[in-house]
Amino acid sequence: MPSDTLYLESVLHHDIPLTREMGLKVVDWQQDQLRLHMPLQANINHKSTMFGGSLYCGAVLAGWGWLHLRLREHGIEDGHIVIQEGQISYPLPVTQDATVICAAPEEKVWKRFVATYKRHGRARLALDTWIVNEGSEDRAVTFTGQYVLHR
Rank of each mutant, 00 (worst) to 15 (best):
V94A: 11
I16W: 02
R139P: 06
K47A: 02
T95R: 13
G23V: 02
Y117F: 12
H120E: 09
T142W: 13
L71E: 12
H14L: 10
V141D: 04
R112N: 11
T129W: 10
R20E: 12
T99I: 14
L71R: 07
Y117Q: 10
T5Q: 01
Q146G: 00
K47C: 04
A140S: 06
R139E: 14
Q96T: 15
H74G: 10
D78R: 11
A59V: 08
P105H: 04
L55M: 15
R35T: 14
Q31Y: 10
H46G: 09
R151Q: 15
Q146D: 05
A140E: 00
G79C: 11
P39K: 01
L36H: 06
A104L: 08
V11S: 07
Y90L: 05
L36G: 00
T116A: 13
I81G: 11
H13P: 05
L12R: 02
S136T: 04
W29E: 00
L12M: 09
H37G: 01
P39F: 09
W66G: 00
F143Y: 15
R70A: 15
V27M: 14
Q31F: 07
D97T: 14
A103G: 14
N45P: 01
A103I: 15
V27S: 10
F143A: 03
I131M: 09
E73R: 15
E9C: 04
P105E: 15
L61H: 14
K118P: 04
A115S: 14
M50I: 00
Q30W: 07
L149P: 01
I16K: 03
E77P: 04
K108C: 11
E73K: 14
H37N: 02
T116W: 13
L92C: 04
L12P: 07
A140K: 08
V94T: 12
H74A: 13
G86K: 06
H68Y: 13
P91F: 03
Q41P: 09
V11G: 06
A98H: 01
G79A: 06
V82M: 05
Q96S: 13
V26E: 02
E137T: 15
Q146R: 00
H150S: 15
F143W: 14
S48M: 03
L6P: 02
R139T: 03
L92F: 11
I88Q: 05
D4N: 02
E77W: 08
Y90N: 11
H13G: 11
L149Q: 06
K111Y: 03
W29V: 01
I131Y: 12
S48K: 12
M22D: 05
A123P: 06
G145S: 09
E134K: 07
F51V: 04
A123W: 14
H14I: 10
T129K: 05
A126R: 14
I131C: 12
G52I: 00
L34Q: 04
R112I: 09
G53K: 02
Q87H: 15
Q146C: 05
T19Q: 05
T144A: 01
R139Y: 11
I83S: 10
S10E: 13
Q33S: 10
L18D: 04
P91V: 08
H13Q: 06
S136N: 11
E137K: 08
G23L: 03
A59W: 06
T49L: 03
V94Y: 02
G86H: 06
M22Q: 01
G65E: 12
Q30P: 00
L127I: 10
A98M: 05
A115K: 13
V60G: 07
I16G: 02
R119V: 11
D78Q: 07
L71M: 15
E134G: 01
A115R: 13
